[in-house]
Design a protein around this nucleic acid. Structure first.
Lengths: 223, 223
DNA sequence: ACCAGAATATGTGCATGCAATATGACTGGA
DNA sequence: TCCAGTCATATTGCATGCACATATTCTGGT
């Protein structure tokens, strides 16, 4: 029996997680300045691990870090958002393609089960539960691609976009449509149809972007 | 007239570049331990910027960094190499697809000119010049995709793979074949044929991987 | 009143020092 | 002889302090 890693986290790693959580929860809003001394005091450590945690978060794009100017929570312009969603769509589609080719029977079964269980959530309109399951769904596709590099990149993009897609499922009927799009993806993957899986996932992600774009336009119009 | 950035590099940034250069040049071989104190003395700085540079390089995958165990130059197992090449192929193909759709006429013209100038290099078998031009060629495709996120990721993967593909063009006839594959990619992009561009680039990258695989097998057999 | 320049203040970049942990040598027992 | 346990050393993780760059405020001039 192989021992798993002891999982001893350094302060830096825990800090990175905590700061990321604060950003993703919205407590640290996009554009907000992240002062090293402030963070150090808040989390009860010195500035050194704070600095290292900030560097790490900057490498994932969650925060902006300019030399001698400090860190701010990344706020994306609409152009950058479009770039992010575009990249996301490409990567997710690539993962779906690979997943269709290389998922094991067990993985395919798990994906199918998960998808079917999401039908109930969509039907009864449980947005929070559906959103949580949705993350798992996409993570299934990532891991099914059997390419850790792509999976990590996809996960990073998803986290980075998280602050801007929280309201994604608010649009009326989005849940049902999302589930219908998933169905096409799942069918293609189960059929080992790489081309169809790519197209279906790309379609799904593009529609997500559209939905968010309309939502953003609506909120701007109402403001 | 907008002033360009002052371009003041911090010690950490310069260090990251210098260490990366040492790794890419082969001076720091894969698997080698990178001692903080050693690097600090060698580059005449304290350990703090060394630590931060190492973190940055770790985030790009160029080095491995384990808590309390220090840094080593990343040595990829063949399985990891396969993953890297797989991801690379997917990303490059995605960039080619986007480039076919969104390159400007000027960008298309530049790509075509570059490709044509590479014909001479391939014909006279100038491996070094061809390799350099090859990097520019792929960079052209990245930038033509008009997606900074994907371009950055692709560039990172390329750097990460650099230590293992240095001998890529040593195989007899690889230059000519590479140029022929490029021709298919260029034709598809110039024709705005997204699907063909994707397929052609994917093909090209897969063949690169094959060539490298055979080379690796040969060198192992001769050892 | 507004703008330019200087002085102040804040905050980052880096150096150094200490404590904690991992690695390797060493000793004792089976 | 081999293995387990202990000890010594080396190296990382973190705290603290200082210098310099950047941001802000204040002052004087137009």
């Amino acid at each position: 029996m192989k021992r798993v890693e002891p999982e001893i986290l350094t302060r830096t790693e825990r800090l990175a997680d905590e700061i990321a959580a604060a950003v993703l929860s919205g407590e640290f809003a996009p554009g907000r300045r992240l002062d090293e001394a402030m963070l150090a005091e808040r989390f009860g450590v010195s500035r050194t691990p704070v600095r290292e945690a900030l560097r790490r978060l900057a490498s994932t794009g969650l925060i902006d870090l300019k030399p001698r100017r400090g860190a701010t929570v990344a706020d994306a312009t609409s152009a950058q958002l479009e770039t992010l969603f575009g990249a996301m769509a490409e990567i997710e589609a690539a993962c779906a393609r690979l997943a269709a080719m290389s998922m094991t029977p067990i993985e395919r079964r798990r994906l199918q089960n998960l998808h079917e269980s999401m039908a109930a959530l969509a039907r009864r309109g449980d947005r929070d539960e559906y959103a949580a399951a949705n993350v798992v769904f996409h993570a299934c596709v990532y891991s099914g691609a059997h390419n850790g590099i792509l999976a990590e990149f996809a996960g990073g993009l998803r986290r980075r976009l998280a602050p801007f897609r929280r309201a994604q499922f608010r649009t009326e009927g989005r849940l049902a449509r999302s589930h219908a799009e998933h169905a096409v993806v799942v069918a293609a993957i189960l059929a080992c149809d790489a081309v169809a899986a790519h197209a279906a996932m790309f379609d799904h992600m593009s529609l997500v972007e559209d939905a968010l774009g309309r939502l953003g336009a609506a909120s701007r119009a109402s403001a």
